[in-house]
Amino acid sequence: MNTIQSNIANLPTRYGKFKIKAYKQGTQEHLAIMSQDFETLESPYVRIHSECLTGDTLGSLKCDCQNQLDLSLKFIAQNGGLVIYHRQEGRNIGLVNKVNAYALQDQGRNTIEANLELGFKEDERDYSIVGHIFRDLDIKKLKLITNNPEKMQYVDSLGVEIIERIPAITKSNKYNEGYLSTKKNKMGHLL
């Protein structure tokens, strides 16, 4: 699939100053958010953050997405590296289906059961754009900020060396305890 990419631009934020570069693959657009010193780093810290409109933008308490994004942007601003904003909403089932999954969760299903009931796999994400971004930015080794073993396996499959895994652990609350339990017990997340 053809990938289109933008030039690099500056982005000052409340976390610090970053450089950004956008990538388009099919209809999905993704963002590389780099620390100012990114190009000088031999093994940058990297977070592959999957889009979550309800969490990242609206502050939903049903997940830990916004907290993980905040943690990662602060960490990258201070320590150098890259956040890939991977725009595949709701484990790539889309916003409408994610809201439908929320409705099923309101009736007692967990996130996996809801996705399966809607006719999807438990996780529909495609990480191929991440490989393209790594090649474009010449990343051969990194320190991966993740709890997700599938992301670690994907990075490893690219031949990119993971020097260290940094956990992205945030506080739970009464609304996301079941969600986090499902991630840990059913999806193998390292929480």
Results as ranks from 00 to 15, higher is better:
residue 3 T to H: 08
residue 3 T to A: 10
residue 6 S to N: 02
residue 7 N to C: 09
residue 10 N to P: 03
residue 11 L to M: 15
residue 14 R to T: 04
residue 18 F to M: 00
residue 18 F to A: 01
residue 18 F to R: 00
residue 19 K to L: 07
residue 21 K to P: 02
residue 21 K to N: 02
residue 21 K to V: 00
residue 22 A to I: 10
residue 25 Q to N: 13
residue 30 H to G: 02
residue 33 I to D: 03
residue 36 Q to R: 15
residue 37 D to Q: 11
residue 41 L to P: 00
residue 43 S to D: 10
residue 43 S to Q: 10
residue 45 Y to H: 15
residue 45 Y to L: 12
residue 46 V to F: 06
residue 47 R to M: 07
residue 47 R to A: 05
residue 48 I to Q: 08
residue 48 I to V: 14
residue 52 C to T: 10
residue 53 L to Y: 14
residue 53 L to G: 12
residue 53 L to M: 15
residue 54 T to M: 11
residue 55 G to C: 11
residue 57 T to V: 15
residue 58 L to G: 12
residue 58 L to I: 14
residue 58 L to P: 10
residue 58 L to M: 15
residue 59 G to E: 08
residue 59 G to D: 05
residue 60 S to Y: 13
residue 60 S to V: 11
residue 61 L to K: 15
residue 64 D to P: 08
residue 65 C to H: 11
residue 66 Q to P: 01
residue 74 K to P: 03
residue 74 K to V: 01
residue 82 L to P: 01
residue 82 L to F: 06
residue 83 V to H: 00
residue 84 I to V: 14
residue 84 I to Q: 07
residue 84 I to T: 11
residue 85 Y to C: 02
residue 87 R to E: 13
residue 88 Q to E: 15
residue 88 Q to P: 08
residue 90 G to C: 03
residue 91 R to N: 00
residue 95 L to T: 05
residue 99 V to M: 15
residue 100 N to I: 01
residue 101 A to D: 06
residue 102 Y to A: 14
residue 102 Y to N: 12
residue 102 Y to E: 15
residue 103 A to F: 14
residue 103 A to T: 15
residue 105 Q to T: 07
residue 111 T to A: 08
residue 111 T to V: 09
residue 112 I to Y: 10
residue 113 E to S: 01
residue 116 L to C: 10
residue 118 L to A: 04
residue 118 L to E: 08
residue 119 G to F: 03
residue 120 F to R: 07
residue 122 E to D: 15
residue 124 E to P: 00
residue 126 D to G: 09
residue 127 Y to K: 00
residue 128 S to K: 13
residue 129 I to A: 06
residue 129 I to Y: 06
residue 130 V to K: 02
residue 133 I to V: 13
residue 134 F to D: 11
residue 137 L to V: 04
residue 138 D to Y: 08
residue 143 K to N: 08
residue 144 L to V: 00
residue 147 N to S: 02
residue 148 N to E: 09
residue 148 N to K: 10
residue 149 P to H: 01
residue 149 P to V: 00
residue 153 Q to G: 08
residue 153 Q to V: 07
residue 155 V to Q: 03
residue 157 S to G: 09
residue 157 S to H: 09
residue 160 V to S: 06
residue 163 I to H: 10
residue 168 A to E: 05
residue 170 T to R: 09
residue 173 N to P: 04
residue 174 K to Y: 10
residue 175 Y to I: 02
residue 175 Y to M: 12
residue 175 Y to F: 14
residue 180 L to T: 02
residue 185 N to T: 09
residue 185 N to F: 09
residue 186 K to F: 11
residue 187 M to C: 05
residue 188 G to N: 06
residue 190 L to F: 11
residue 191 L to I: 13
